[in-house]
Nucleic acid binder design. Structure first.
Lengths: 231, 231
DNA sequence: CTGTATCCGTGTTGATACTG
DNA sequence: CAGTATCAACACGGATACAG
């Protein structure tokens, strides 16, 4: 009567494994459950607390988040850590191996962005918007882009810069950056990926921008969604 | 009494979508269900029939396979096609967009191959073994590898060659290739990725090999599993 | 041979409410 | 804030029966 209780905590052996040694199958085993990869996405820009994860993942209930965190910890993708002394808070952060999921996640995102079913009105976490910039930037066109970037997305501060065509992002105060974009994730997305122009959105008060307008537009133009071309 | 019946056929609208515009979320929506990505994997080397898919995916029952095929067709990942005249068989083949899943799949596989939980004794489809070669080849070391390769994996014929460090694979008769490897998927995997040497496996009759032995060994040495190095 | 439809037992998922 | 408990709905996989 006391067995049967271990089921489903973390990486239980009772899970139905794919009878398949292929790496794809193992990957689906490890991070293929519903929400898992989105939890990892939220952690890609640094460790987060339970409540921050919930905030970035509307629709995910607490118990499922707990299950996913247990599973991902058991798989060695992330680690639960208690912050030093005064903070004393618990955070979840990716292991080195977990951080290596960035490449698969970006590959999947780029692929999915080509779908006609892509609905850009659903919701977007602050982290997801910032990562989308890193994912979708045109590396060739971006090479050598000079300005230091700042963002305040849904109130959260970020800093970024272009390095060898890649956008490096960190959570830090945007104060003093040459270009600073400020707004809600979906609004910013409509400027970077949609039809809205930076100047017009700014005039309507939906986005705040400081810096040289033409350089700002040049930065925005580094981004765009791929066209769907299926056979 | 007649509603409620549309649920779950193909891409039903009743599915619980992630309230998230992020590409990762959409990707999980489209190919994140159990088995979906493995079905795509089986199709990466060309169209297959229902029964061939089942053979390559033990553990997947017929009704679930039907559901996945419907879903993936509705998403535009694959297409059901009836072969011209004499054959008259139905095959499932990836669309151009579906073929673009190769990159995300390979990224996931390479990532997962670094896990200590990787169990290489589970089973491996013929297609999965051939794709693993394409995934795991050391591109630098492989550059310029001269020989035409042939394989007979679990009875299925394949041909391959190295082009710019990448392994190009097609389903075709291996007859006449400079190096030909023949055996069961798991046995071949233990030679390419595990401790078994080519010569010894050949002596034991587990693998048949024709061609220059040292060139054969040189080819085998282009493959290996990454070490797990987690913080 | 190539699937499709249905039922059924089980496990997974998720929303709500609740506790330390 | 950080989870646990409970319960309902659904997805999965096996078996079987059926259709072109």
């Amino acid at each position: 009567m006391e067995s049967q209780k271990i089921t489903n905590s973390g990486l239980s052996k009772s899970r139905r494994w794919y009878p398949d040694s292929c790496g794809t199958a193992l990957a689906m085993e490890l991070v293929g459950e519903r929400w898992s990869l989105l939890v990892v996405r939220e952690l890609l820009l640094g460790g987060r607390r339970f409540s921050e994860l919930r905030a970035g993942l509307p629709g995910l209930s607490a118990n499922i988040l707990t299950q996913r965190l247990e599973g991902l910890e058991a798989s060695g993708v992330l680690r639960k850590r208690t912050l030093p002394s005064p903070a004393n808070a618990q955070i979840y952060e990716l292991t080195k191996w977990g951080r290596a999921l960035e490449e698969p996640i970006f590959a999947l995102s780029r692929w999915a962005a080509g779908s006609p079913l892509h609905d850009v009105t659903l919701g977007l976490s602050n982290t997801a918007f910032m990562l989308s910039l890193r994912t979708m930037i045109d590396r060739e066109a971006a090479r050598g882009f000079p300005a230091e970037l700042g963002f305040r997305v849904g109130g959260e501060p970020f800093r970024a810069r272009v390095d060898d065509g890649r956008l490096e992002i960190e959570r830090a105060d945007p104060e003093g950056a040459a270009l600073v974009f400020e707004g809600e994730p979906l609004t910013l997305a409509s400027v970077f990926y949609g039809p809205d122009s930076l100047a017009e959105s700014q005039r309507l008060g939906k986005v705040r921008f400081t810096g040289d307008p033409s350089l700002g537009q040049r930065f925005v133009d580094l981004f765009g969604l791929p066209a769907f071309d299926n056979d």
